[in-house]
Amino acid sequence: RNLTILSLPEDVLFHILKWLSVEDILAVRAVHSQLKDLVDNHASVWACASFQE
Rank of each mutant, 00 (worst) to 15 (best):
R1N: 15
N2R: 12
L3R: 11
L3K: 08
T4S: 14
T4V: 00
I5N: 00
L6A: 01
L6W: 04
S7M: 10
S7W: 04
L8V: 00
P9E: 04
P9I: 01
P9D: 06
P9Q: 03
E10L: 04
D11Q: 13
D11L: 05
D11T: 13
D11N: 14
V12I: 14
V12G: 03
V12E: 00
V12R: 00
L13I: 04
F14D: 03
F14K: 15
H15C: 12
H15W: 06
H15E: 10
I16E: 02
I16L: 04
I16V: 10
L17E: 00
L17Y: 03
K18Q: 12
K18I: 07
W19V: 10
W19F: 15
W19R: 11
L20D: 04
L20E: 00
L20T: 00
S21F: 03
S21D: 15
S21Y: 05
V22H: 12
V22N: 06
V22P: 11
E23Y: 05
E23G: 07
D24R: 02
D24I: 04
D24M: 05
D24W: 03
D24H: 03
L26G: 07
L26P: 04
L26A: 09
L26Y: 08
A27E: 03
A27R: 13
V28E: 02
R29A: 01
R29N: 00
R29F: 05
A30S: 14
A30P: 01
A30F: 05
V31D: 03
V31C: 13
V31A: 13
V31N: 05
H32I: 01
H32D: 06
H32A: 07
H32N: 15
H32T: 06
H32L: 03
H32Q: 06
H32W: 00
S33Y: 02
Q34E: 07
Q34K: 15
L35F: 11
L35V: 02
L35E: 03
L35M: 08
K36V: 02
D37T: 14
L38V: 15
L38Q: 04
L38F: 14
V39T: 02
V39Y: 02
D40Q: 06
N41S: 14
N41T: 12
N41P: 05
N41L: 09
N41V: 06
N41C: 10
N41I: 07
H42G: 07
H42M: 05
A43W: 10
A43T: 07
A43G: 08
S44W: 06
S44K: 12
S44G: 14
S44C: 08
V45M: 12
V45E: 15
V45I: 13
W46P: 08
A47P: 12
A47Y: 07
C48H: 09
C48W: 09
C48R: 09
C48E: 14
A49G: 14
A49T: 14
A49N: 12
A49C: 11
S50Q: 14
S50R: 13
S50F: 04
F51W: 09
F51P: 11
F51A: 11
F51L: 14
Q52I: 12
Q52A: 14
Q52M: 10
E53Y: 09
E53K: 14
E53P: 08
E53S: 07
E53M: 08
